[in-house]
């Protein structure tokens, strides 16, 4: 069984606002003082793949992680190998800067890489990237490869030639059956990815890394973007004039808070 997981390297999304420095002319966000990390949602997708590997111990399950970008860090992406992926495929090109590619272009590049990898029963993607938050690439890849796609999936069970999935809905979930190969967009409800041990981290350095460029995929030249990024500007962060409600004890402060909210007509 061959599983491909699409992962993206992003600047740590939990960094404070002044770390996300906007270059308005180049239309780029230049992160300062925050490390690149794996996009959290892609970690959800990889965790879902690892659970399949755990559940199918009697079978030969190979997990390949694929990532596209301008400059990819082995140190960051090797985390995927450390937790249990078997191989890393990096697609790097000066033109593949995160902000320069829209979802359409990204999906077509990743689909080309997956076609070149060739063997896949299941492709997993995160629900959105933690930097540009578009949430479209998974479905786009499925479209380019002409395979079924199921989104917001929290649980995957592989059976002969098909997969049984739990897809999150507004008031519960749907049990969905899809033939394989298929693309599955993992929901964040899959939960956090496991931590690699020190030994796993060391072993990961011996796992194979394949490096391709745009030319290897026949993707030099036009990016095929459908959107035009026109402007970047800082988000206005909410500024609360925080009124501290106090009391001799925390309980009294709690009672004073009730009074205050009532006086201000809020409860």
């Amino acid at each position: 069984m061959d599983i491909i997981v699409c992962i993206k390297q992003v600047p740590d999304p939990e960094g404070p606002q002044d770390c996300f420095v906007i270059n308005p002319e180049a239309l780029r966000v230049e992160p300062r003082g925050i490390p690149p990390v794996l996009s959290l949602f892609d970690e959800n997708a990889l965790e879902a793949a690892l659970r399949i590997k755990d559940a199918c111990r009697d079978q030969d399950v190979k997990i390949t992680v694929v990532s596209a970008g301008k400059k990819l860090s082995n140190a960051v992406l090797q985390k995927a190998l450390a937790v249990g992926a078997d191989e890393l495929v990096k697609v790097e090109d000066a033109a593949f800067e995160s902000g320069a590619l829209d979802s359409y272009a990204t999906a077509s590049i990743l689909a080309a890489a997956i076609r070149k990898i060739g063997r896949y029963d299941l492709i997993l993607a995160g629900r959105q990237a933690a930097d540009w938050n578009a949430g479209q690439v998974g479905i786009g890849i499925a479209r380019f490869l002409d395979i079924p796609a199921v989104t917001l999936v929290r649980k995957i069970e592989i059976q002969e030639g098909h997969a049984l999935l739990e897809r999150v809905t507004a008031d519960g979930y749907e049990a969905v059956k899809t033939p394989l190969p298929a693309l599955v967009v993992a929901s964040n409800e899959v939960g956090e990815m496991r931590y690699p041990t020190m030994i796993q981290r060391r072993e990961a350095k011996k796992k194979p890394i394949v490096a391709w460029g745009a030319a290897d995929l026949g993707r030099e030249g036009e990016l095929r973007n459908k959107l035009v990024l026109k402007r970047l500007f800082p988000a206005e962060m909410r500024k609360g004039e925080c009124m501290l409600v106090e009391g001799k004890t925390p309980a009294e402060a709690g009672r004073n808070l009730a009074r205050r909210l009532s006086q201000d007509g809020l409860i």
Binding site: P11, P13, F20, I22, V29, A130, D131, W132, F233, A235
Partner: peptide, 9 residues
């Protein structure tokens, strides 16, 4: 975008 730190048009 960027965890709501930046707006993109």
């Amino acid at each position: 975008v960027y965890s709501s730190n930046v707006m993109a048009a």
